[in-house]
């Protein structure tokens, strides 16, 4: 019997071996190259990267934009998941279509749409002037606010769906039981509802944040070259500057952040699961 079980484990080998060779190995080589110089292991490239004010500015901007994008997406997604859970019939279909259709659409299409929307003579400016909020067109394209709004729009379904999944399984009787015991709505929210939906929040936030730190097409179309992000620096070092050493170093920094997010969020998810 044991030998049969072992044989079943072997079925995992082709797929995992593929990812090990064509995904993990190239990433490890990239990391190794970034610290290996002709005279041994050296972190000189990293020291040079982190001591450069411009690079630090780009790193901080990337993290700030990703954090704000995640926060905005979470603020919209959390109440939406509850509304979606109460929706029935055609209303539920509307919600589901609004999630799945944008998810099925490429990022080039959506980023391009936002670059039209944010133009000085674009839809948003025309609407703002029409309702009289502003007289002259507001500069929106090429601003960080526009980038955060566009990015939150693109990643929103990936935030709503994990939260919706846990809200749907939430036992409605728990908050009600708390209410019958005299708990105030705020107390119920922070002590019953929020802890129970936290796994969905963690999953959605981790996914959104890791996509937002590495987005490339969205900032290229919405903010352009003037406000670089880490991904744009990587693309520029490889495709235009042909500076592979710099590109590899930034890639390694971005990779390290992404790995920390993946490992930390899976650890957190498992802890939350164990607690329940």
């Amino acid at each position: 019997m044991t030998s049969r079980i072992d044989r079943i484990s072997l079925l995992a080998v082709p797929g995992l071996a593929y990812l090990a060779v064509i995904y993990a190995l190239p990433l490890l080589i990239l990391l190794a190259k970034s610290i290996r110089t002709p005279d041994g292991i050296s972190f000189a490239e990293y020291a040079a990267f982190f001591s450069d004010d411009y690079n630090m500015g780009v790193l901080l901007r990337t993290l700030r934009v990703a954090a704000l994008t995640t926060l905005l997406a979470l603020l919209i997604a959390y109440p939406t998941a509850f509304a979606m859970n109460r929706a029935k019939g055609p209303m539920l279909t509307v919600f589901l279509v609004a999630m799945v259709l944008p998810m099925s659409l490429g990022v080039v299409v959506k980023a391009f749409a936002w670059s039209i929307l944010f133009r000085a003579n674009g839809f948003i400016n025309t609407s703002l002037q029409w309702i009289g909020l502003t007289e002259k067109p507001v500069r929106m394209l090429f601003t960080e606010t526009a980038l955060v709004i566009g990015a939150a729009n693109v990643f929103l379904p990936f935030m709503v769906l994990p939260i919706y999944a846990v809200v749907r399984q939430l036992d409605q009787r728990l908050p009600e039981a708390a209410a019958s015991l005299g708990a105030t709505p705020f107390f119920r929210f922070f002590h019953v509802t929020l802890p129970l939906t936290l796994p969905g929040v963690v999953a959605g936030s981790a996914f959104t944040f890791s996509m937002a730190i590495s987005m490339y097409v969205i900032p290229s179309l919405i903010v352009g070259e003037r406000q670089q992000t880490l991904s744009m620096l990587i693309a520029r070092s490889f495709l235009y500057l042909r500076n592979e050493a710099l590109g590899s170093t930034i890639s390694a920094v971005l990779l390290a952040i992404a790995i920390i997010v993946v490992v930390f969020s899976s650890w957190l998810a498992r802890r939350l699961e164990a607690r329940q």
Binding site: I22, L30, I234, L254, V262, S266
Partner: peptide, 21 residues
């Protein structure tokens, strides 16, 4: 987690790593 992790890795970095590899 490893098998699903490419979804959360920076695409450009994976692209660069594959190019060099």
């Amino acid at each position: 987690t490893f098998a699903v992790s490419p979804l959360m890795m920076p695409g450009l970095v994976v692209g660069v790593a594959l190019l060099q590899f």
